[in-house]
Amino acid sequence: MMRVPVRCIVSGTVSAPAIVLDEPVSFWGGFDAHSGRIIDQQHPQCGLSLTGAVVFMRSGRGSSSASSVLAEAVRLGTAPAAFVLQETDEILTLGALVAEEVYGTVTPIVIAGDLTDIEPGQTVTIDGDTLTL
């Protein structure tokens, strides 16, 4: 067990398997809310499902419609369980905040340093400003 202090952007509690993205994915245009999969054909992990995972991604990317796509994925039950980013991303944050306002579902977002040791599939627990591996 390793506890890592993180900066909490959207507060919540979740425990789920990790997915580590090689490159940031643009949720608008690069992610399909119906299937929960990456559809950006230029992304090295195109086709990967993000549903229910704690997604480790360096930063957000691309169009400002990403908030809507995340909120829609939350509504459809295909969204990631949480995001661990290295920089604040207001666009994903808004998608999570609106989904919480409208549907009452919390998608925690935290900011951590460069966590290069994360094994894909290992269970990650986020509780407010603590991340446990």
């Binding site: 809310a33 809507s68 796509v69 909120a71 829609e72 509504r75 609106v98 409208v102 549907y103």
Partner: peptide, 12 residues
């Protein structure tokens, strides 16, 4: 936000 991405935009 006026571009339709699904029901969530309308709900909001």
């Amino acid at each position: 936000s006026c571009l339709y991405h699904g029901q969530s935009g309308l709900d909001f």
